[in-house]
Simulated scan of single mutants.
Amino acid sequence: MIGSVVFWATAGDILTASAMRRIGDLDAVRARSGLVGAIRAVVTDLHFGVGVFCLALSFFSLLFALSHNDLSLIGPAATSLTFVSNAAAAKLFLKENVDRRRWMAAIFVCIGVALLAL
Rank of each mutant, 00 (worst) to 15 (best):
F83V: 03
S72R: 11
V42C: 11
L71I: 04
C110Q: 09
A106I: 00
A65R: 08
A19S: 06
I14W: 05
G34H: 05
S80K: 00
A11D: 05
G24C: 13
V6P: 10
L81C: 04
R40K: 12
A19P: 03
A38M: 10
A89D: 12
N69L: 01
V113T: 13
I23S: 13
L118W: 14
A114H: 07
L15P: 10
A87S: 04
T79E: 14
V98P: 07
N97H: 14
I107S: 11
P76Q: 09
R32C: 11
S18L: 05
I14Y: 08
F48G: 02
L115V: 01
V36F: 12
A9W: 11
V5P: 06
L92K: 11
G37Y: 06
D70A: 03
G24N: 13
L115G: 08
K91L: 01
A9P: 00
A19E: 03
G49S: 08
I2M: 07
V36Y: 07
S61L: 03
T10V: 00
D45S: 15
A38S: 11
R22I: 01
F60W: 05
K95F: 05
A17E: 12
L15G: 06
A87D: 04
S4I: 02
T16W: 08
A31K: 12
K91W: 10
D45L: 11
I14M: 04
V98E: 09
A28E: 15
F83W: 13
S80L: 00
N86M: 00
A41T: 07
G37L: 09
V113M: 13
W103P: 04
T10P: 07
D99G: 13
G34W: 02
S72L: 07
G75N: 14
L15S: 05
A114Q: 06
R30Q: 12
G51N: 04
L15Q: 05
D13N: 14
R101A: 05
R32E: 15
A105M: 10
I14N: 07
R100P: 00
A78D: 09
M20N: 09
G37D: 08
L116A: 06
L66Q: 06
A78F: 01
I23Q: 13
F60H: 00
L94G: 02
R100N: 06
